[in-house]
Amino acid sequence: MSRDRIAECFARCRNEGRSALVGYLTAGDPDVATSEELLLALAGKVDILEIGMPFSDPMADGPVIQAASERALEAGVLIRDVFALAAKVNSTCPDTCIVLMGYANVPYALGFENFSEQAARAGVDGVLIVDIPPEEGAVCDHALRKNGLHRILLLSPTSSDTRIKLASDAASGFIYYVSLTGITGAEMGEAAAIEQQVERIRSFSSLPICVGFGVKTAEQAAKVATFADGVVIGSHFVSQIPLHCNDHNAMVTALKKTASAMRDAVRKVAV
């Protein structure tokens, strides 16, 4: 990796006095061609694009992202399509960071060496594997590091101080703070409690902290943006797809509109 786009991104946001907007879509949802349009539309609005790798058994996801994985797999999306979509985003939006997100078995099946090489070649900046905690890093850390990929780790309300230290040492790029004890798309908790947790993490780590899981409205995003370095919107963006399943133009338009509203929300506040 010639540049550290993730570090540049957070520096830029800090200078502009705002939080980074992180947006998630599942690759290949609802099909590869439409997914390309959707990802490019979103990449133009967000600072960091999380591209989900579809998996048959998405254990940490709520119904919205589960359905996205099922649509993508039914459409026959393969891991090579995921890399091709990432490469397309990378060449079209060179300033947008790309994070591949998913479950361990897909990269494990390919082999983490092979996976990391292909991801790096596609212009991916970081990788977030939900079910590989720091303790199990032996399966992937070396390959990711060798290919200049950030290893993004999750922290949650149940993470002890010891675990926060452990994750802070093993993570790079940024820390993804899961704002609630639950699955993606659940109801967001009290902003004040989330802020307190973010401050707790800051006492152990100098990495930027993005907050996700449950952020659905522009008001929530604006509130989170007052104390977090980044706001992650996942299920809310993905939910635009089934709403407009028969009209792809409307789907892209709705996604752009939602993303713009979120972008304004995280910009409004001065950190």
């Binding site: 079910d131 905690p133 922290l155 002890s160 675990r163 004890t181």
Partner: peptide, 20 residues
């Protein structure tokens, strides 16, 4: 100590479950 039987087993769980 992390629940591995040889190269198998372990604790490949989401962060929220690691504490519990």
């Amino acid at each position: 100590i992390n629940g591995h039987f040889g190269r198998f087993g372990g604790r490949f769980a989401a962060e929220t479950l690691m504490g519990p």
